Computed example of a mutant assay.
Amino acid sequence: MSAATLTQTIGRTLAELRQSRGWTLKTLSEATGVSVPVLSKIENNQTGISFETAMKIMGSLSLSLDELTGDKREPALVSGRRAINPAGTALKIPSMGRSYELFATELRQKRMVPMITTVDVHSAEEWGPLSRHDGEEWMYVLDGSIELHTELYAPLTMKAGDSVYIDSGMGHAMVALNDAPARVLSVYAGTGAPFGMPHSDG
């Protein structure tokens, strides 16, 4: 599924969900923390949806990726499933100051979500509100160097080859330390995750 198709599907599903609950856009805004104008544009496919906004909506409404994209398929009973991503085929979702590459997106109800975040922000303020979501997460710096900010620990400097395992419910943000963007591989494990994280800033 392309990012454009995903955005269109999210808008349609969100509108149908809101209407089925008898909610106004204002009610949905209060439930998700996303402004009415942004929600309206998403529903009408007038704007792309940022990764953070999608995570916030899904986390607030307890939606999985299957539910958000309207995928009604029953999960496979066969345990030997697999997903292959040849180079360059990850689902890319741009966002402010960072972008995401999501892998194995054709697999539903995954217990783990692998992704690569390209970080091009240079201060915690530029990142925005700390990201937080259910579950646990392992991060490995592929290229460049970052400073990992968390709400419970002092900033942690990490260079290529360094890794960290965190409780994802602890607020966190990544800052690139050099002029060039940094790339970080993350593997998220949790229940009910839409793409990988139920909600972030958005």
Rank of each mutant, 00 (worst) to 15 (best):
E74S: 12
L185Q: 02
K56H: 01
A160M: 06
S145T: 13
M174H: 02
A173W: 01
G144K: 08
E106L: 03
I49M: 02
M170P: 03
S62K: 14
A160Q: 08
R111G: 10
L91Q: 03
G88W: 04
E101V: 14
R82Y: 09
P181K: 03
E137W: 05
I49P: 00
A104L: 00
T89S: 02
L185N: 14
G161S: 10
G169R: 11
T150G: 00
D134M: 07
L142T: 10
L185A: 04
E151R: 00
A104P: 01
E106H: 05
S123D: 01
L91K: 05
W138N: 08
A124M: 13
L148W: 09
V121E: 09
V119N: 11
L142G: 09
D120L: 06
K110A: 07
I84K: 02
M55K: 07
M112W: 00
G128F: 10
L102E: 14
P181H: 13
S163K: 12
T69G: 08
V175N: 06
V113G: 06
P75S: 07
V78F: 10
V119T: 07
P86D: 02
E137S: 12
T157G: 02
T89V: 07
L91A: 07
D134K: 07
M170I: 15
S168N: 11
M58S: 07
L177V: 08
L61K: 04
N85V: 10
S62P: 01
L102H: 11
T105A: 07
